[in-house]
């Protein structure tokens, strides 16, 4: 099996004790913007090796939930743990997660190769690890065809694929994806779905938000439906 990016750094083993139980545990998570309640008492548990989808209309609180879990936004109330590590232990938490924000968040002055090298270094990869990483990237079907293309010249789908790869740097155990397929063409979408499926099989815990329910239904084990900051339904799907 070709592991591509996911085995670049260190051991890729997942702590088995969480494999069957709940790996990500969210209890009573709330967040308000002044009078507006963005999230209200959200609770759910997600086992390792599963993909959960977060569905909902615009303004339902999908991005807010993912930003809080990515530790880039504070919460008002609630407990969040992943494999026993609390969200309050920020340094340890950030070492465990990979975050792909809704916007591309890439420097369009760089080409894809430079972008990967930059984010690998920013993630703390040593020079040797970065070289190894680039060697692996050269054969990764997600990006291998356009490594020397400047980001500003990449299509929406290409840029989304680069953004996903950047989010997967360091082989994170918890992967948070905020609208990762927005603007991606069918081919790019399929490649990304295949990669996420592969990561699930490798035991990664994946939370992906999207307002495209058909994509979520195709990919996810479970879908969390958000409406006005509250969890409304939980639709079980077979991956």
């Amino acid at each position: 099996m070709n592991l591509w990016m996911i085995s670049v750094v260190g051991a890729t083993c997942v702590e088995n004790e969480y494999k069957n139980g709940e790996s990500l545990v969210v209890r009573g998570l709330s967040k308000s913007w002044a009078a507006h309640k963005a999230l209200s008492g959200i609770s759910f548990g997600q086992p390792a090796g599963t993909v959960f989808g977060v569905a909902g209309d615009n303004g339902a609180g999908k991005s807010t939930l993912l930003k809080i879990l990515a530790s880039v936004l504070s919460r008002d109330k609630g407990q969040v743990t992943f494999q026993g590590v609390s969200l309050d232990e920020r340094t340890r938490w950030r070492a465990l997660i990979g975050y792909v924000p809704q916007e591309l968040a890439l420097d369009d002055r760089l080409n894809v190769r430079e972008t990967l090298l930059f984010w690998a270094a920013a993630r703390g990869f040593s020079l040797t690890e970065r070289k190894r990483f680039l060697e692996v990237a050269a054969s990764d079907p997600l990006i291998s065809g356009f490594l020397d293309k400047p980001i500003r010249e990449c299509s929406g789908g290409m840029a989304r694929r680069v953004s996903l790869i950047v989010g997967l740097l360091g082989d994170p155990l918890l992967i948070l994806l905020d609208e990762p397929f927005a603007g991606a063409d069918h081919h790019s979408r399929q490649l990304m779905l295949e990669r996420l499926d592969l990561l699930r099989k490798r035991g990664r815990t994946i939370l992906v938000s999207s307002h495209e329910e058909d994509v979520l239904e195709e990919l996810c084990d479970h879908i969390l439906c958000l409406q006005d900051g509250e969890l409304c339904t939980r639709v079980d799907e077979t991956a």
Partner: peptide, 13 residues
């Protein structure tokens, strides 16, 4: 407050 900063924050604190 940009996503780019969010990403940097997650990567290097």
């Amino acid at each position: 407050g940009t996503s780019y900063e969010d990403r940097l924050l997650v990567s290097c604190g």
